[in-house]
Design a protein around this nucleic acid. Structure first.
Lengths: 336, 336
DNA sequence: TTGTATGCGTTATCAT
DNA sequence: ATGATAACGCATACAA
């Protein structure tokens, strides 16, 4: 039942080589037979076997995705899964498919790089900040094309949100509204994004001639609701006067921040304004609807995809190392 | 740099065949050389090339995922992405990896089945209800192992939530609370889940000797917030007395339902109780915190994974066709 | 127990 | 422009 190019060749009184050229190669074939074969092939629905092609051609048209090693932190992450979705949509338009890199084959454990070699993936997207470092370093320094949507490293092309711009917009807004005691709640500072946001927070304060006060800052011990809640509690405990504004460095944190504020009798936004970061799809449905920094996941995913395909296709020179995608401030109800 | 089993064989004064047997085959090799080779192979980090193996062995250890054709509806879906995450975690423990099925290779469009054949995937997970029908039917009726987490069809093994149980629990709760005018808002009835939930809703009403009233039911024209909002508006318009209870057949719908209710001066839960379905990770953070039916995404993903691997490994007989995973009612603040 | 030879289905080189 | 032929790297039936 299953045909090979040999069968097709026989059926068309041609040689396998000619069929192959027509299907994928760049060889010289007359226009007439090319069309004839293409038509027939379409008719019978023939497609050349993938593994044989990959074996011979050393190109797979598959892109590896490295996600966090932490189980359950991956596809469910609102930001990264959205970026990945857009990445996927883009590359599929160019005939690429995506597969998740795992660090083993059967019983055998292997490094990301090894896996990529064995699978002959054409490139990788590194989606995540929380990673097995040596594994990643080895991969990034190898010859296989790589793009990241979170980390920045030498030799690594990266597409990320313009975190500095987002923080500056938020802080500017607060200050323009006359808010004085500005606090910030960050996720764990092991992640690049949070580090940059914190730096931008300090910088923007400085721009306005305001000092950064340690007691109005707290680094959450985890990413989500609880992290935000506990970090806020700490700020409240450490300062005589409650903040008038809290910049939560993610929307998830913001939920915890707001809850903690309210549990302590502070009204949002009447007593304290809060701004999140990301604009998750549920941010607008919270009560109060969350003011936040919108991250353009589509632009990030697509820019990363474009860059990766460019590198794969050899246009390495024209590519800027780290591209920052603009963000924008969305004011809803959690700010005055 | 890159070694083949030939290289390894030479380096160990053995034949390629022996190396191959040791690595994956079931051939007879002495314990001594087996250990020796295994040790060496581990030392140099040798892994046999994947495409050659697949070509020869006709088994790939990759599982295809068919997601909806609708762009942007996929990885971002809270329910399905969670199920997929757990599925992925499970199969990876058994040496399988997952790849998204696309309906083309390069320029060439092909059916799901064709794609699976060409890629030699060992099995597929069908995650979705909104699908290209003929494509799916062809796939399901083929000889390639398939499991679904949404659709039910002849010849298809399926793992889903016990929708009937969930609806019954919710309705029972409302009736026990003395609520009388029970309404329901469903997503588009093109989806199995919504159809079953509606049937269960009618059935449970019947169980309590209550009639199903058309004016207290509305089928949303879309899945999300807007769908829920507009459907609720319709119910309000079509009935003299507002419902005392609305069963939203998904959490996303529930958000729209609640908003619409409130926009019409109805307080939740004082005037009307609302129950959602799924227990998305943000359900608990809404205001009021959403009462809902918890779906066990982990159990679903893992059961689907286990079944698929069982089928692949030939244990076809012992497998029940459709497995329903228990759900549970979670009462929070949106119900009295 | 180990080695040899052939085939898996392509692609690519070199003739024709 | 087309055809023959040799890899690609592994698995396996068979021989030793």
């Amino acid at each position: 039942m299953k045909r090979t190019i040999y069968d097709v060749a026989k059926e068309m009184n041609l040689s396998p080589g000619t069929i192959s050229k027509i299907l994928h190669g760049n060889g010289n074939v007359s226009q007439a037979t090319r069309e004839r074969v293409l038509k027939y092939v379409k008719e019978i629905g023939f497609v050349a076997d993938s593994s044989a092609r990959i074996l011979k051609a050393k190109k797979s048209f598959v892109l590896g995705i490295v996600f966090s090693d932490i189980a359950h932190f991956g596809l469910e992450h609102p930001f990264f899964s959205s970026v990945l979705q857009h990445f996927k949509n883009y590359v599929e338009r160019y005939g690429y498919e995506i597969v998740f890199i795992v660090n083993r084959i059967g019983e055998l454990e292997l490094s990301y790089l090894k896996w990529c070699k064995v699978k002959k993936v054409d490139g990788v997207l590194i989606v995540t900040g929380n990673i097995n470092k040596p594994n990643i370093i080895e991969l990034v320094n190898s010859d296989i094309p790589a793009v990241s949507v979170d980390m920045v490293m030498d030799n690594l092309v990266t597409v990320i949100s313009d975190d500095g711009m987002g923080i500056e917009q938020g802080v500017d807004y607060a200050i323009n509204k006359g808010l004085k005691r500005l606090a910030a709640v960050s996720g764990p500072l092991t992640s690049r994004a949070y580090i940059e946001r914190l730096e931008a927070f300090k910088w923007t304060l400085g721009k306005h001639g305001m000092p950064f006060q340690e007691n109005y800052f707290s680094e959450a011990e985890s990413y989500g609701f609880n992290g935000g809640y506990n970090a806020t509690k700490k700020i409240l405990e450490n300062s005589e006067a409650a903040p008038e504004f809290v910049f939560a460095f993610s929307d998830e944190l913001a939920i915890g921040v707001i809850k903690c504020l309210e549990d302590n009798g502070l009204r949002v936004p009447l007593d304290v304004s809060v701004i999140g970061f990301d604009d998750n799809y549920f941010a607008k449905h919270l009560t109060p609807a969350l003011s936040t920094i919108y991250q353009d996941k589509q632009a990030i995913g697509e820019a990363a995809a474009k860059k990766l395909l460019d590198i794969i296709e050899g246009k390495k020179e024209e590519i800027v190392k780290v591209e920052k995608i603009p963000v924008s401030l969305i004011i809803r109800e959690s700010t005055i």
